[in-house]
């Protein structure tokens, strides 16, 4: 005897989770963005299937929720890697070699900005300013900020993430 989990069951579990988040936060002012953050935090990304559930709880149209999800860079439409590595590409970091560091990161991971390595370990991305402008180039690994990142240091950080 063995157990199977139906895909529809998984979808239903996810929908229930999303509905619970949306219902919990529904009464705060301007609840949509806090809800989307919470969904992504819990479930890794904001799936297209989550959109009608949130719209239903907030009494918004699906188009309105879809419009918000797609406007903001933070909200991922598909699962990301286990760790997100973001390389600052803004002016202050450019002044100390951020572009070359970004190219190095792409070569090392074999993916471009916004993409995930084939083993699912790392999502590489660019970011415009991490507020570490006097200690650039800056890189963020998960929530953790790193300053004065050399290519060698970036390799070490990528190594820890894999």
């Amino acid at each position: 005897m063995f157990m199977t989990t139906d895909v529809t069951d998984l979808a239903a579990v996810r929908a229930e989770h999303v509905r619970h988040i949306a219902t919990t936060l529904r009464d705060v002012r301007g609840p949509l963005i806090p809800i989307l953050h919470a969904v992504q935090e819990d479930l890794g990304h904001v799936d297209q299937a989550d959109v009608p559930v949130i719209a239903d709880v907030l009494n918004l149209s699906v188009a309105e929720v879809h419009g918000v999800v797609t406007f903001y860079r933070d909200f991922r439409r598909a699962p990301g890697g286990r760790t997100t590595v973001r390389v600052c590409q803004a002016e202050a970091c450019q002044a100390v070699g951020a572009e070359a560091l970004g190219e190095h990161a792409k070569r090392r991971t074999g993916v471009g900005f916004g993409a995930t390595t084939s083993d699912g370990a790392v999502t590489l991305d660019e970011v415009f300013c991490l507020g570490n402008c006097a200690l650039g180039p800056a890189v963020q690994v998960g929530d953790r900020l790193h300053g004065r990142v050399t290519p060698a240091r970036l390799d070490a950080l990528l190594g820890e993430a894999r």
Partner: peptide
């Protein structure tokens, strides 16, 4: 929403 590169005083 201190998004300007080169600014970090708010943070």
């Amino acid at each position: 929403d201190e998004g300007d590169s080169g600014t970090f005083a708010d943070r």
